[in-house]
Design a protein around this nucleic acid. Structure first.
Length: 475
RNA sequence: GCCCCCAUCGUCUAGUGGCCCAGGACGCCGCCCUUUCAAGGCGGUAACGGGGAUUCGAACUCCCCUGGGGGCACCA
């Protein structure tokens, strides 16, 4: 065990965003690679937006991803007294002050500044209130927030592991709220206090937070810290076409990918490849391999665009590599949800085996196997497939030949092979077979035909073939 | 408007002054295989944003421009 301590500290305000999952993953990989401690901290200081469901959901998602934590979850909402104590201390020291401006007033002033082309930000109105002014505001019934007093000049600098020297002029950073007028502490404060108390050594987070680091660092120093954690600001994940990954780009939460049938190992593998590259050219990696290979030195600086196609490909790779029993277990929930009542597990596992080498997704496997558990009378051939079927030459004769063959053939894979029977009609098997696929599986694309027929059984196969034959020529 | 960060194929990236007229992966295109569709095999297309500077030599160093992203909340 090293003394490296990192934390993943999401705000529980909704579903787990892909970017959040990536931050969790990199923290976890870094901790596991270095033998450090991975802490889960819930930053629920915004009591209005935070929900207990989201707190639960974060843990569910982390478990699904395979990211276990060593300490926590620590809820900041249970630690308000510490943050408030710290705030009081800062006020006493003169590093912070009470502000009586209302939210609306500040918003209006910022708007005004913006429209004049000036830089928005707190204008420092309550910075140096006299006791009399203060009393007047209180008498007015105004609520008080607490603001941190940022330096008027000089620069804030820190060395980022990924970006190197980062600095900003203090003159461009206005005083910021650390305790809301409703008495609850704000992110910056809680973050600084907890990182100190939890002895966090490395902070890995999204680059969107890079500007806030200066403020947290200033708070930290004002609170008496004589050291600071190492910071690594990870490149952002952009949506296709650039810009923030948003709903407009499709699925953006981990839950959506889980429910769509992605293997967690594949999802994690893909996330790892966004902004980080393995030392050699092997990019299909298990969680353990990722841990072994992970290195902060190899994290990129430029933002990465999320590419669903590569995720899809990686999912296929991981599906192929999985032992059949594990794959079956992974697909089972999707199958149960769709046709659980009629499911026969041995047949299902055989179908999963057939689908394994061709599938890119768990849900897709469940769908490909579904025809095996659909009552013959309920089998629906989708329109697009039927359209293709009708274009096939001698389609009726092909079905007749298939029926005749299946009626009497030996009930083995070789016996069911009806290519010769179709060939005899002078139609190439590859041209002819789609109609049989459609009749048996309900669509022209699916599991290998002869295996499918074998699994389905002779009676059922014949019923389906005859139904299709009838549909072509009702007479 | 101000501040910060970034910049290699369409996308993810390798590359840390000569090994690079730039390598891999996804995608795309073509061919092969084939029980349709896939999967698989083989091959191909495609990039160092522009301009200066440093150097015997720059994808790699520095500066400017341009472009992209982020921030400027009593959200995190």
């Amino acid at each position: 065990m090293s003394d490296i301590r990192v934390r993943f500290s999401p705000a529980p305000t909704g579903m787990m965003h892909i970017g959040n999952a990536r931050t969790a993953l990199f923290n976890w990989l870094f901790a596991r690679h270095t033998g450090g401690t991975f802490i889960l901290r819930i930053e629920d200081t915004d009591v209005v937006r935070s929900t207990t469901e989201a707190v639960e959901q974060i843990q569910v998602v982390l478990r699904w991803l395979g990211l276990d934590w060593d300490e926590g979850p620590v809820l900041q909402s249970r630690r308000f007294d510490r943050y408030l104590d710290a705030a009081a201390r800062l006020v006493e020291q003169g590093d912070a002050y009470g502000c009586y401006c209302t939210e609306d007033e500040i918003k209006a002033r910022n708007e005004a500044a913006r429209s004049e082309g000036k830089t928005p930000g707190y204008d420092g109105r309550c910075r140096d209130l006299t006791p009399a002014q203060r009393d007047a505001f209180v008498a007015e019934g105004r609520a008080r927030s607490i603001r941190f007093r940022t330096p008027d000049d000089g620069r804030s600098e820190f060395v980022d592991i990924i970006r190197g020297d980062v600095s900003v002029a203090w003159a461009t950073v206005s005083d910021f709220v650390i305790v809301r007028s409703n008495g609850t502490p704000v992110f910056f404060l809680a973050n600084a206090v907890d990182d100190m108390e939890m002895a966090i050594t490395h902070v890995l987070r999204g680059e969107d937070l890079i500007d806030s680091t200066h403020r947290v660092l200033a708070l930290r120093h004002a609170l008496g810290a004589d050291d600071q954690p190492a910071y690594a600001h990870l490149p952002l994940i952009l949506g296709p076409g650039g810009g923030k990954l948003s709903k407009r780009h499709g699925a953006i939460s981990v839950e959506e990918y889980r429910d769509a049938g992605y293997l967690p190992a594949a999802f994690v593998n893909y996330l790892a490849l966004l902004g980080w590259a393995p030392p050699d050219e092997h990019e299909v990696l298990t969680l353990d391999q990722l841990i072994a290979a992970f290195d902060l030195e190899r994290v990129h600086q430029a933002a990465a665009t999320f590419d669903p196609q590569k995720l899809e490909w990686l999912d296929a790779q991981h599906i192929k590599a999985l032992p059949l029993s594990e794959l079956t277990a992974a697909v089972l929930p999707f199958a149960r949800e769709r046709y659980g009542a009629r499911l026969d597990v041995p047949v299902f596992e055989a179908a999963v085996g057939l689908a394994q080498e061709r599938a890119t997704n768990l849900l897709q496997i469940a769908e490909q196997a579904e025809f095996l558990f659909t009552p013959d009378d309920d089998l629906v051939i989708d329109d697009a497939s039927w359209e293709k079927v009708l274009k096939i030459e001698k389609v009726a004769q092909i079905l007749d030949a298939a029926i005749a063959h299946v009626e009497s053939c030996a009930w083995t894979l070789e016996g069911i092979d009806l290519r010769a029977a179709v060939d005899a009609l002078g139609v190439k098997a590859r041209k002819a077979l789609p109609v049989v696929y459609a009749a048996i599986e309900g669509k022209t694309a699916g599991l290998p035909l002869f295996d499918a027929i074998l699994l389905l059984g002779r009676d059922s196969a014949l019923r389906r073939l005859r139904a299709a034959r009838l549909r072509i020529d009702p007479a």
